[in-house]
Structure formats: structure tokens, C-alpha cells
């Protein structure tokens, strides 16, 4: 039996996924990237291998993706997370036509074809609006854990619109709303709307086609997902571990390379 690994070294977390030659996912590991991406990648791979009981030598091919991909010495090839998210999402949900990925530092909208190949994509500019970072800053402002934001936003019956797009401006807008004693849940829902509108605007430039799959850590936020679904008018595919889609795609591309040869 031969095995393949994909490693996605992101700004916040690093994921490793192991698959076998039938493209079945055997196991994965998630680590904090921290200050040393190479160590995080090594650790994630080690843990994933030990979880599935496969040795390093049994790995045929390793593909690295994500921001830290360039520095991973044991990767056989480096592929951008755009192509990897596309392949991962296609594998999990074959009817996927559009992938929305909202990560810690950036967000992307990727249009893919029936083989999981990228047709077109768009990413946010330097600004943090429309990313996980934006929600993190706002969670800090409210003093609530970022994981709880989504639930809080779902509790609101109404929402207070946030007009600023800039994270810094939005923060001061939120502070003045808090000072006016406006309901916390309604402000939070407004913030979720701001993120969704931003990404939705990006999505218009490539167009949304087919089923939509969301990847990245923010896909775990039910408030965000609900607002996207409201915009779309139908439901979105979400995997139980949306962070690992990039690493899974990398592993699939590793397998694909060998199979082509």
C-alpha cells in the first residue's frame, strides 16, 4: 500500500492529511503554526502518520500548500492553496462549483470545474475586512471568545448595520455603539453581515455557480454560514473539519501526480 500526504501551512494553523492510493482519507492532525512553520509542519505530519500507523517511508509523495509552503524541506512539490482548496472541496462534495474560503488572514472565492480544477478565483486585498482576523478583533472588543460570536449573532432578531469597511474604523464604530448601550447581539450580527457582504461582493466578480462549499476556520461560525445561505437562498456544504480541506486537496494532488506518471 502506498500513501500520500498533504500539508497546509497557514498563518494560524497547520494541517496534515494522509490518504491512501484509493484517495480515502485515513487521518489528519491540526497544529498551531506559531513562530516556526517548519516545526509545525513536521509535528503535524508526525502526528498524522502516527495516528494512522503509517511510517514516513511509506509516504510516496508529499505536497505542501499555504503561506508557509515554500519553506517545507520534505515536500516533493508546492502548490497554492487555491488549487488545493478546489480539489479538496471537489473530493468531499463533487457537485461543488464554488468554494468560499475564509481564513485567518485572507478570504477567497474559487470557481471550479467538474474535475475540481480552478476556473477563476479572487482574493481580498491587503485589508483585513472580510477575514477571520476582523472577527477576532471584534471578539476582543466585546471580550467574548471568537468561537461564541456565531451563536451570539444567531440570537439577534434585528441587526445594527456597521458602515465602515476598515477594521480600525469598524472597531471605533462598535465601541461607540457599546457606549450607547445598543444590544450586543444585534451589533455582532451587524458585524457578521459586514464580513459576509464583503466576501459576497468579491464573489460577484467571479460569479457563483453550482453548489457552494465553505472551507477555512470561519466556516465553523454558524452565524456567518447562515447569512451566506440567506444571500444564496439555499444551503452550503460544510465539512465537520473545514480547516483541513486545503491539506486534503494537497494530498489528493500528490496522489494525482503519481497516478499521471
Amino acid at each position: 500500500m502506498t500513501y500520500f500526504a498533504g500539508i497546509d501551512v497557514g498563518s494560524l494553523s497547520t494541517e496534515a492529511v494522509i490518504i491512501d492510493e484509493d484517495a480515502t482519507m485515513l487521518g489528519y492532525s491540526i497544529q498551531e503554526t506559531g513562530a516556526d512553520p517548519v516545526r509545525a509542519a513536521t509535528e503535524a505530519l508526525r502526528e498524522a502518520l502516527s495516528l494512522v500507523g503509517v511510517s514516513r517511508e511509506q509516504l510516496h509523495h508529499v505536497v505542501a500548500t499555504g503561506y508557509g509552503r515554500i519553506n517545507i524541506p520534505f515536500a516533493d512539490r508546492k502548490i497554492t492553496e487555491i488549487s488545493c482548496h478546489a480539489m479538496g472541496a471537489h473530493h468531499l462534495f463533487p457537485d461543488t462549483g464554488t468554494v468560499i474560503d475564509i481564513g485567518g488572514q485572507d478570504s477567497k472565492v474559487i470557481r471550479i470545474n467538474a474535475e475540481g480544477r480552478v476556473l477563476d478565483f479572487t482574493m481580498n486585498d491587503k485589508c483585513a475586512a472580510g477575514t477571520g482576523r476582523f472577527l477576532e478583533v471584534m471578539a476582543g472588543t466585546f471580550g467574548v471568545p471568537v468561537q461564541e460570536l456565531g451563536e451570539l449573532s444567531l440570537k439577534a432578531q434585528k441587526e445594527i448595520p456597521i458602515s465602515s469597511v476598515c477594521t480600525v474604523f469598524a472597531e471605533s464604530e462598535v465601541i461607540s455603539l457599546i457606549a450607547q448601550n445598543r444590544p450586543r447581539e444585534q451589533i455582532i450580527r451587524g458585524l457578521h453581515r459586514a464580513v459576509v457582504s464583503r466576501v459576497w461582493g468579491m464573489a460577484q466578480s467571479v460569479g457563483i455557480e453550482g453548489a457552494v462549499t465553505m472551507s477555512g476556520g470561519v466556516a465553523k461560525n454558524r452565524g456567518i454560514v447562515a447569512l451566506f445561505e440567506e444571500n444564496l437562498g439555499h444551503s452550503i456544504h460544510i465539512h465537520s473539519e473545514p480547516q483541513i480541506i486545503g491539506a486534503l486537496g494537497a494530498a489528493l494532488l500528490a496522489r494525482g501526480e503519481i497516478h499521471q506518471k
Binding site: Y67, I79, T80, I82, R117, L119, F121, D125, K126
Partner: peptide, 26 residues
């Protein structure tokens, strides 16, 4: 690409450029 002179390419921009080349190749 939305670039500023002499600011190099951020990791994000490199990713965009590489992903674009992957599309062009396909």
C-alpha cells in the same frame, strides 16, 4: 495585482500569481 512600488510580493500575492499560472497551465 494591486501593487505598490518596491514593496515586494506578499505571500498572498505570490499565492495569487502562482495560482494564476496553475490555471494558465491547466
Amino acid at each position: 495585482l494591486d501593487t505598490e512600488l518596491n514593496q515586494g510580493l506578499s505571500g498572498q500575492m505570490k499565492t495569487r500569481l502562482e495560482a494564476f499560472i496553475e490555471i494558465v497551465r491547466v
